[in-house]
C-alpha cells in the first residue's frame, strides 16, 4: 500500500488483479475489461463513462471486490458513482417510482425494533410472515425499497425522502433484508444496531441447530461484503459449529448464486445467472441448499436437484440431531 489517504478511488489502483479473482462479472466473461481493475485502469487511461457503459451495466454490485483490494479502494462505490452518470434504465426508473409511491402511502412504522424486508422478501408474503414470527419483529411499511433501487442505479437520492426514511427508523434495532441498503445504512446511521437478514436468522438457535453438515449454505453476498471483517468471523463460527459447506471461496469471499446485474428487474434467471449457479455447485454434492436471499431461490432450483430452502423455512423442519 503506497498511500494512506482516504477515501481512495481509481487512481490508486496498481493493477494487482486480486479483484478479478472474486468478480462474477469477470468469471463469466474472462475479459479484464469486465472487472473493477479494468474499470479503474480504463479511468486512469482517460475512459469516460459512456465508453464504460457496458461494463458498468454488467456489475452485480456484490461487493466482493471491496474487501480484497489491498489498496482499500472503495470499488463498489466507484462503480455506483459511475453508474449514476449513465442514462437511467427506464424499467428501473418505473420500479423506483412505484416503490416510492408505496412508501409514501405506507402506515407509520410500528414501535420498537423493525424488519426492513426489502423487495425480494416482500414478494413472498408467506416467507415474510415466517421471518417476522421467527425474529419477533414487525415489518416497516416503508422499507426503503425505492432507495435500494436508487443505490443500484447510482442515482441521486432526494434528501427529503432520505430524511423521512431515516427519521422513521433512527434509534431502533433494524434487521435489513436488502444487502445494498444495509451497506448504506451503516454509513447513514453509524451508531445504529443493524443486522442483515441472514445474520439475524442464522443467530437464532431454532434455525442454527437445523443447519446440517450436508447442507450447502449460500450467504447473501452484498450484506456479507459490506461488513466483511466482522461477518467472516460470524460465518466461520457457523461453519465450524454446523459443519456445512458455504459459498465462500478460498479468500473467504461469498460467491453469489447469480451473475447478472440489476436483479430487481429480472423475471427469471439470465444465462449468466445459470452459468454462475452451476459453477457454484460444481464439485459439490449437498443434500439441501440453504439460502439467505429469497431472490436466489429460483436460479438455484433450476440447476440443482435438491431442495432449496430459505433459512427461515428451516425452523418448521425437524431438528437436525446428528452431524453427518
Amino acid at each position: 500500500m503506497y498511500s494512506t489517504a482516504h477515501p481512495r478511488d481509481y487512481p490508486a489502483c496498481s493493477g494487482c488483479s486480486l479483484c478479478r479473482l472474486v468478480c462474477p462479472m469477470w468469471r463469466h466473461r474472462r475479459d479484464p475489461r469486465f472487472s473493477p481493475e479494468g474499470i479503474a485502469k480504463a479511468r486512469q487511461n482517460g475512459a469516460g463513462v459512456t465508453e464504460l457503459a457496458d461494463v458498468l451495466d454488467a456489475c452485480t454490485l456484490c461487493g466482493a471486490c471491496d474487501p480484497v483490494c489491498p489498496e482499500d479502494i472503495a470499488l463498489s462505490d466507484m462503480i455506483m458513482d459511475l453508474r449514476g452518470e449513465l442514462e437511467l434504465p427506464p424499467d428501473l426508473a418505473v420500479l423506483q417510482v412505484g416503490y416510492a409511491q408505496a412508501a409514501a402511502q405506507a402506515a407509520p412504522a410500528p414501535a420498537g425494533a423493525l424488519l426492513l424486508a426489502g423487495a425480494a422478501l416482500r414478494a413472498d408474503p408467506t416467507l415474510l410472515t415466517q421471518v417476522e414470527a421467527l425474529l419477533g419483529l414487525r415489518s416497516a411499511g416503508d422499507d426503503g425499497a425505492d432507495l435500494a433501487v436508487a443505490l443500484e442505479i447510482g442515482g441521486d437520492i432526494d434528501p427529503q425522502r432520505k430524511r423521512r426514511f431515516l427519521n422513521a427508523i433512527d434509534g431502533r434495532s433494524l434487521v435489513v433484508g436488502d444487502g445494498l441498503l444495509l451497506r448504506e445504512l451503516r454509513r447513514w446511521l453509524p451508531g445504529a444496531r443493524l443486522q442483515g437478514l441472514g445474520e439475524a436468522l442464522g443467530s437464532l438457535p431454532a434455525i442454527r441447530r437445523r443447519i446440517a453438515s450436508t447442507d450447502f449454505y449460500v450467504i447473501e453476498a452484498r450484506a456479507f461484503h459490506a461488513d466483511h471483517a466482522r461477518l467472516v468471523a460470524h460465518y466461520d463460527g457457523l461453519r465450524k459449529d454446523r459443519g456445512c459447506a458455504m459459498n465462500l471461496d478460498l479468500q473467504r469471499i461469498a460467491m453469489p448464486a447469480r451473475a447478472s446485474a440489476y436483479p430487481a428487474l429480472r423475471m427469471g434467471p439470465a444465462r449468466e445467472d445459470l452459468e454462475q449457479a452451476r459453477w457454484l455447485l460444481q464439485g459439490r454434492r449437498p443434500a439441501r441448499i440453504v439460502i439467505e436471499d429469497a431472490a436466489e431461490r429460483d436460479v438455484l432450483r433450476r440447476v440443482a436437484d435438491v431442495p432449496v430452502l430459505h433459512l427461515a423455512e428451516l425452523a418448521a423442519l425437524n431438528e437436525v440431531t446428528v452431524y453427518a
Binding site: 496498481s14 493493477g15 479484464p32 479494468g38 485502469k41 480504463a42 487511461n45 482517460g46 465508453e51 464504460l52
Partner: peptide, 26 residues
C-alpha cells in the same frame, strides 16, 4: 485498440517498465 483497454496492460507488477501495445487480444 482503445486506450482504455490497452492501458490495463501499461505496466507489470514491477511497475517500473511502461509500454502500450497497439492492440489487445483476449
Amino acid at each position: 485498440e482503445s486506450a482504455a483497454t490497452r492501458g490495463i496492460f501499461a505496466t507489470d507488477a514491477g511497475g517500473t517498465a511502461y509500454g502500450l501495445p497497439h492492440g489487445v487480444v483476449i
